[in-house]
Design a protein around this nucleic acid. Structure first.
Lengths: 366, 366
DNA sequence: ACGGCATCGGGATACGGTTCCCGAGCCGAC
DNA sequence: GTCGGCTCGGGAACCGTATCCCGATGCCGT
């Protein structure tokens, strides 16, 4: 007697046919009522279906829907590390913009592992995502260019699209969009801020040597030194990973070896926080004895004491722009199979210095 | 001569049949080669298929796969705010554990909007996710209980499972798992730490009155006061949202109205950061003049100067536990349709005080 | 030499929707 | 009165993959 028609025992899957049967209509009608197409459906059928849907607590199977051609567009966010504030803000921007359009967001973390990145891109390709957004500075090997170009073409062939955010853009005619910020100019402005305050001996903590963002920040600083006619002392540059331990250790070492610096130009707000602690531990005051600047303008910057003068990077905006770019391209794709000339695109957002309390003129000038 | 041959005209979707045809085998064989079932396939067929798969850069369609019964389990992470460090760490734990098992992670942000939360749970139900993990403190209305119970039952009926992390658990026989930490004990210990250092006039900034976590933290503190025989002055309690502006404003106001406090018991590390700034702005030193404690032990706590004494909450571990619970339950579900008695489950993780540099005995005792 | 078993490939079907196409009913207009 | 057009419902053909079931082949033992 345990027939399926009684509904109450339909514990597992409720299908569209169950609904149709119970409402006394065809599956096609149920689909039309639910899929909000503008196919005309009589009010009686509509209300009958809706009632049954509520009764049975039915939801459509997204996989079947996708398979049949309809289906919610999904954006994949691939990120090195969810706990990084900067990345989290980009992700927020992407997710927010996605939600606004009714898109779904899948996230995967790569943990800086290229193998895992590869695996994830393929996984996302399987999912048939509308776009893949790759976040975070990358190591700019030749191999990187090759790998990304392959990703881009694979995704493109599958009707998807690759968006690189805060990463080196791709050379050549590769179907990918890059969303970037003016990294070098930000560093230029930040270093200029210190130089124009009178600092000459500036300890630079750009970050890891191979990371694209670190390179850009160091270049910007170097250009500022040139512009101000101040010799750039490579002995005052110390490399290391983007974390506070690096900031701490680098300052501690510099205090022993080249203690005449009057300011610290940190590659990141987090690095600046570490540097600040090391200075305090050595009995130095910030900014009275030593000035500090950061980069990123994450919430931490204004939570430190003194509040950190830093470079504002519009991370959340970048995320939004990234998704918009992907969505636009998707819309445009419907036109013709023939590729447009604007296959690859490079969007650059501005940065600016946020002046807070961590910079003062060097002591001897006061 | 490096032509891609026929491949070039298969621009859009490459299906399993395309692969089969090109390899001169049936679709069934291709499926068997790729799905790593232990169905016996001859080496010649296998290698032929693999070759074509590489040539065509074929990936299986995950939607079709899911529809056919196989398919990657997916966990949905529903989170108020990606930029909150605590939530980000939970999410990291969930995501990491998911990845480890080959699961996928979908995220959605609710932005504290119950409507959006509802919509998201339904969306995830459509996706046929294996589990939904709901993060973050919630407002503990009666309606909350009802709503969550409905979610839990809906998901359960669809073969999925609801996991509540850092939220009030559900009353009654609701098929949901709760992963929690010992919030009240943490607060008890933290307040006890201040009391045993000699503080008696302690400014409490528990957070918003209605939030479940804030309530628990205040209760713990109150119990500590009782245990130490110290009267609990409600005039020294100031409510507000969990952000640094609240910490700043509350301390500023307290400095005018009840300036005799010697310590601040903040409901959150971020709140503590705001409080610390307000004290500094008023010319007070931390911890020499006023002690401060936090709660959460996010990275910020050790980036502040002085480093913050706080309560460590095992956020990432909670995330891992949450996913494990969901996975275990899923495995167990295959056994019998009949429900076990352990339909709802409540896991509680421990907390502990991390002593750093932001607490000293009050001045008059030194 | 022959039956039987293990190995392996292929056709058919199911998964749960969407949508094309057709047809029935109804109304208004000539 | 008839015909055309419009409204709306249903049957059926997909979407791409996994898997059941059956048949073909080859090898072994007796």
């Amino acid at each position: 007697m345990n027939q399926r028609k009684t509904t109450s025992d339909v514990v597992g899957r409720v299908t569209i046919r169950d609904v149709a049967e119970r409402a006394g209509v065809s599956a096609a009608s149920v689909s039309r009522v639910l899929s909000s197409s503008n196919y005309p459906v009589s009010d009686t059928v509509r209300s009958r279906v809706m009632q049954v849907v509520r009764d049975l607590d039915y939801v459509t199977n997204a996989h079947a829907r996708s398979l049949a051609g309809a289906g919610t567009p999904t954006v994949a966010i691939l990120i090195n590390n969810v706990t990084s504030a900067a990345f989290a803000h980009i992700a927020k921007g992407v997710e927010g913009a996605a939600t606004l359009r009714g898109w779904l967001s899948l996230v995967g973390t790569t943990g800086d592992d290229p193998e895992r990145e590869l695996a994830l891109v393929n996984l996302m390709r399987q999912q048939g995502v509308a776009a893949v957004v790759l976040l975070g500075g990358a190591y700019d090997y030749d191999e990187y260019q090759l790998r990304m170009a392959r990703f881009a073409r694979s995704l493109d062939a599958a009707g998807s699209h690759l968006v690189l955010v805060g990463r080196p853009s791709l050379q050549g005619d590769v179907p990918a969009t890059t969303v970037d910020y003016d990294n070098e100019s930000g560093a230029y402005a930040m270093a200029g801020h210190l130089l124009s305050a009178g600092h000459r001996r500036i300890l630079a903590l750009p970050g890891p040597a191979e990371l694209s963002t670190a390179q850009g920040r160091l270049n910007g600083a170097r250009r500022a030194f040139e512009a101000y006619g101040v010799p750039f002392d490579r002995g005052l540059v110390r490399r290391g990973p983007y974390d506070d331990a690096y900031g701490y250790a680098a300052v501690e070492a510099a205090l022993h070896e080249t203690p005449d610096f009057t300011a610290v130009l940190a590659g990141t707000d987090v690095v600046a926080a570490g540097a600040m602690q090391a200075l305090r531990a050595a009995g130095l005051r910030v900014p009275e004895d030593v000035s500090i600047t950061g980069y990123d303008d994450i919430p931490l910057a204004s939570q430190l004491t003194p509040q950190l003068t830093t470079v504002h990077v519009p991370y959340e905006e970048m995320g939004r722009v990234a998704l918009r770019a992907a969505a636009d391209r998707r819309k445009g794709a419907g036109a013709a199979a023939g590729r447009k000339s604007s296959d690859s695109e490079h969007l650059v957002l501005g940065t600016h210095v946020v002046v807070r309390d961590s910079v003062r003129p060097p002591k001897r000038l006061r």
